[in-house]
Amino acid sequence: MSRRQFWLWRLISVGAALAALLGANVLIISLRSTGWLDDYTYRVIMLCGINILLAVSLNLINGITGQFSIGHAGFQGVGAYTSAAFTVFVVSPWMRERGLQGTPTGDSALLIAGIIAGAVCASLAGLFVGIPSLRLRGDYLAIATLGFGEIIRVTILNIEQVGGARGFYGIPLLTTFFWLYLAVIVLLALSRNLLVSTQGLAFLAVRDDEIAAEAVGVYSTRIKVIAFVTGACFAGIAGALYAHFDGYLNPDNFRLDQSIIILTMVVLGGQGSITGSVLSAVLLTAVLEWLRFLPTITVGGRAFSPSELRMVFFSLMLILLMLWRQTGLLGRREFGWHVVRQYWRLLRT
């Protein structure tokens, strides 16, 4: 492929993605205004997007670089809290003085400012975690990231300005379908391009054999830090979008449970597979919401509500996956045009 063809294809794919996003945006807005799409379904669609961001960004650390982080909720929490604090305490007053608030442009600008603040702070947190991770491997790293996640949560719990244990109320509701899924597209494009680039080969080499990678001249320390910072950055963006979607944050949202839910998404999709992470993020979000509607079961005079069973379901799935299908749904394969083309060829013959 010549250089010109390459850029042409790049332009076409970027254009197609943006057109699809805009089309979906118009569709969602019109469906919502006509009442076909109720608030609940809309909420599930938005949660899917946030979970895709979280799962794909964790996949970058766990699946592609082969590090093991179980503190992803901590990065999400940093992003959520800093972006919310930034929009509520800094940008909003500034905009109010100038009468910019409430206009669509003003709202978008406010959201973008929040996202940037969340992304920067979460990246810094990622840097902070990534640097000690240079010296740790495997299960030690897992425990250290768990520890960082807890430290972040306890610290947030002790900051009275953002509500402490009561939670953070009154965050402006700014997240729209368009901005959320734009972030999803950017993250997907970034991860995909990373995987097919020379730089990406270094990430895979660190995953497959760190010592061999170092021996052939891969600077594994740098790769790991890049992975941590990028992963944390997108977790922070997911957190920022979540904060401005729900309007309320609580430190309990970012407990170990949340990290494990994200981890389960990555493991179910297949560690290292981007499309697998997307698929399982959507699947698990939908299943978790569906579990809410199951009727309450009564056994031996005690009522079991399906919401209590949610985490039981998650943990059982994690164990069974490890016992019977360690590769997850897709393994390290990707789902894309090449798969469609392959099946198309099969159908024709």
Partner: peptide
Amino acid sequence: RPIRNAPRLTALITAIGVSLLLENGGIV
């Protein structure tokens, strides 16, 4: 026991799963 020879991270994920199962099974 079934995953004793699997990579160590597999075992770690299983252990996390068992822990969660005991906690949430305990809640139930």
